[in-house]
Amino acid sequence: MWFRQKKKPEVPSGEERAVRVPEGLWTKCESCGQIMFSQTVAENGQVCPKCNYHFRISARERLEALFDEGAYEEFDSEVAPADPLEFKDSKRYADRIIQYQRQTGLKDAVINARGTMGGVPVIISAMEYAFMGGSMGSVVGEKITRAAEEALRRRAPLVVISCSGGARMQESVLSLMQMGKVAAALARLHEGRVPYISVMTDPTTGGVTASFAMLGDVNLAEPKALIGFAGPRVIEQTIRQTLPEGFQRSEFLLEKGMIDMVVHRSQMRATLVSLVQKFTGKTG
């Protein structure tokens, strides 16, 4: 009947909407609205050629872009989440895990990889936002800890690429303690004088920022990434006013002295290669 309205299309929730997988021929920039050939954007490292907006990319894409010849060996890929608290909100955590594992092909929100950068053996842990917003539960904590231990064993520089909304609520205090666990592993790495470089991408917030992301010998960030402890909405609720433009973005943190460099994605590999070569005394 004419007055019977069609059901509204379901609006995707924040988690699902946030991850963009450019598939079609054309891509619209989420920042400036420019419509471009997807190919052009891909060739530019998934960065908008017009406004430099950095599209969110997967952990695998990052590893391929950073290691020499894009080659790496994954390790600890079998570590998987366990739902120790049998957590259930609108959905069971156990079901969410299975859903995200299907969607991403990963066991959890981080990939550990060994490879070389500019000839220097390097360990990289890259976080995957598409897996529950990159949230840190026991698996993420354990894997980054193992990456730090592996780096110390091999005396190979460690690079962690953060992309995470913070701790995983479904693992409650177990996830909180991962902050302490990873920080303790980094303490040993630092005492062992093995370089650790933290790369922050959009977004890096909460318990991830307040642990390993801020503990780099060198802290790098991609342009305009949201980086902070409390999320912007929480702060706005606290102070009851709107945050100024650019607050908690990479450039703001650079100005406040919290990070060393803001690095365009196209320059990330070169920047990291140059740093690890200097720190390990290799010729560049």
């Binding site: 303790a184 992301a213 402890f229 409390a230």
Partner: peptide, 26 residues
Amino acid sequence: GAYPGMDAEERGQAEAIAVNLEAMAR
């Protein structure tokens, strides 16, 4: 919890917490 305000963020709330975690481990 740690104060979620603008001034705290500006002065590096996350960094301050992170540094304490590592330093206390040492």
